[in-house]
Each structure stands twice: as structure tokens, then as C-alpha cells.
Design a protein around this nucleic acid. Structure first.
Lengths: 195, 195
DNA sequence: AAAGATAATGAACATTGTTCAATTTTGCAA
DNA sequence: TTGCAAAATTGAACAATGTTCATTATCTTT
């Protein structure tokens, strides 16, 4: 990476960090070319020297959130029991991460992607974000014959779909009505998936 | 309902029908005050004499889609076997209805509601749309002791969350990649939920 | 220090939602 | 039927936002 590329990456990072901050503090609705550029210390027009459009910039921040989410969860499951128990803990923490950052939820699951460059890569990153976290423990369960290998594949997907569905209804359709009831439902549903 | 109210309802219906048509044919992105009003034969400004804002109008069409979806499914499960089998058939058809009308999917699950008048009512209508369709068959399963009453409640939710999650990933994140694989996943997952 | 390359910017435009004052239409009493 | 008040309809205008592009500022190299 030559000097020019280094500087370009630096400026891109200013924009991405600005976007991440806005997503965390104000949510997706508050992310627009002018607010992002202001926060980054540039004019809104400069944004287009580094990103094809606003959407491309917004989805660049997925990588940052995936890493942060992984850290958030890793820190908190160190004492969890390997296998089903840890899958359960990870899944609940995954939900809690997106409750803490609704802007990240909107980005991961709701925002339209349009024609960004590395669409497939980012889609896969999002789709696999929970599965990657649970991978080892599912493998452990298969090894210990808690699940068959085929069963594990179905259950991984089910966990992912069920969690995404719960977050969708809670975030977008206020169901369940309050946080407490929601967390009860989350644990109940995750337990049901893992049987 | 007096003459004035009748006429008001009539004009509201023109706007709602126009919105439904646009949602069906062009999707949610194409629904805006000008296109809706054009299709209804009014100026965009007239819309505000009948609805608080565009969002309120858009969510009025939820009721239309729920009815249409119910008809779509009822017509097609007449020969299904009561119980688990029919729950499965209903769920697959529910998915297929939203595949046929992606605009309806966007409306039901993705669109932000803002401060529309009867928000709770519409949220509940959406949330319960699949459960209402399966209600009788779950009751039948409980009666026949296929599930306990408590188990049935958990499974109803799981079906709803799982279906919503699958539609979310397919519509918004292109996962699974193609229709055929998606339908395979849908049946696999629904079977897993119902065991 | 000058010139050419690179980066940053504001002006301008398109799209969309919303408000409001002006205009048109309607309903009804004389 | 006519005239007027109420109601309905409308276009002009504004704000917010995404995007493009020509101009300006900055930097690099000689």
C-alpha cells in the first residue's frame, strides 16, 4: 500500500467512524450525507470522492459492528458451559447487542442495500454473524452426539431465523410490548429451538 | 354514517386502492404522495385532507392485504389434512403470498410506522396474521394431544418468528440465493418447528 | 518558486413530504 | 334558478436529502 492508498484509507476511516458513531447515538434515520460529513470534518461533497454513494459508506460500517459484536459477546461468555448452554448465552447476548444499538440492527437487517460494490460479501457477513459465533459449540454438540451433523445444520438456521424474527417484531412492530416480556420470549424460543 | 361520512370513506378508499395497486405492481419505493394521488385521480395535496400523512395512508392498506392473503390461502388449503399438515401448508402459502407481493412484505415487516393513529391495532394485525390462519389447526392439535396447550403457544410464536426471519433474509439479504433453495429451506424449517 | 496533479468544496439540481393560502365545487336557502 | 357560505381541491412554496460537477485550494515534484 503506497502513500496515496494509506491516506485514502485514513480518510475513508474518518467517514466510516463518523457513520458508526451516528448509527450508535442517533440511529439510521440520522445518518445522511451532511451529518456524516460534518462529523468527519469534511464537506458532504467529499464523501463522493471516497465512496460511490451514501449506501456504500453505510454498509462499510457493518464490518465494524460485526467485530464489536463479537468482542461484546466473547467477553461475556468466557465462563459459559461449552455446548448448548453457550449457544444459548451467545444468542441472548446477540439479541442484547442489537437492543443496545438499534441503529446497528436497522443497518444489518432492515436497510436496503441498493447496488453497493461488495454486496454478496456483506450479505454473507450479516447472515453468518450469529452462526460464526456459535460454530464451535455446535461442532462440540455434534462431537458429543447431542445433535447429528444434519440436525445441527437445520438448528443453526432455525436459531438465526428465529432470532432475526424476534428482533424484527420487537424493533419494528413493538411485539412483545415491553423489554421484560421480550427477553422472556427470547429465552423461551431459544430453549425451544435447542430442545 | 351520514352522507358526508360516506363520501369521505369513498375518497379514502380511492387513495387506499391506489396505494395497494402501487405496492403490488411497483413496490414500496414507488409509493409516494405524487404517484398515489395521480393514480387516485387527485392532487397530492388532497391526500392530506383525508390522511394525517403518507405513512398513515400506507398502513391503511395493511387491512386490505391481510384479507387478500387470507383469501389466497383459504382457497388453497381446502383439501389439506387438518392439524400439522394444514399448518405446514398454510405457512408455506403465507410465505408464497409475500413472495408474490414483495411490496406487501415491505409494508408488513420493514416499513417504519412513525406516529400513525391506530398503530397498536395495525401492529397486532400484522403480528397475528399468520397465527390467525393457523389457530384452528393448532387447537385441533391440542385437542388431539399432538401438542400440549403450552407447547402450542410456544410453537405458534416460533413458526411466526421463523417465517418472518426467513422472509427477512431472503428479501433483504438474498439468502438463500435462489427461489428453489429458499423454498427447500422454508419447508425444512417449518417441519423442524412442528417436529 | 512554478506547474501540474490531487483533494476539497459549494452551487445547483432532482426527488420527496408537507403546509397553506387561493381557487373551485358543492349544498342549500331564498 | 340563483347566490352565497361551507367544503373540497389544488398548486405554489418550502424543507430535507442525495447526487453531480465545475471551481477552488492544497500538495508534490521539479
Amino acid at each position: 500500500m503506497n502513500k496515496k492508498e494509506i491516506q485514502e484509507q485514513r480518510v475513508k476511516k474518518y467517514f466510516i467512524d463518523s457513520t458508526v458513531n451516528l448509527l450508535k447515538t442517533e440511529g439510521l434515520r440520522s445518518v445522511n450525507v451532511r451529518s456524516v460529513a460534518d462529523n468527519a470534518g469534511y464537506s458532504f461533497a467529499s464523501l463522493y470522492n471516497y465512496f460511490k454513494d451514501l449506501n456504500e459508506l453505510i454498509f462499510e460500517s457493518v464490518k465494524v459492528f460485526v467485530e464489536e459484536c463479537n468482542d461484546f459477546i466473547s467477553e461475556r461468555v468466557e465462563n459459559s458451559i461449552q455446548g448448548k448452554e453457550r449457544i444459548r448465552d451467545i444468542s441472548v447476548l446477540y439479541v442484547k447487542y442489537f437492543l443496545e444499538y438499534p441503529g446497528a440492527y436497522e443497518l444489518f437487517f432492515l436497510e436496503r442495500m441498493g447496488n453497493i460494490g461488495n454486496k454478496e460479501q456483506i450479505c454473507d457477513l450479516i447472515y453468518n454473524s450469529l452462526n460464526d459465533l456459535c460454530k464451535d459449540d455446535f461442532a462440540y454438540c455434534v462431537k458429543k452426539k447431542v445433535f447429528s451433523a444434519e440436525q445441527a445444520e437445520v438448528l443453526k438456521k432455525q436459531l438465526n431465523y428465529c432470532v432475526a424474527g424476534m428482533l424484527l417484531f420487537y424493533h419494528n412492530r413493538h411485539n412483545p410490548k415491553d423489554y421484560k416480556e421480550f427477553i422472556t420470549t427470547v429465552t423461551e424460543q431459544i430453549n425451544q429451538v435447542l430442545q
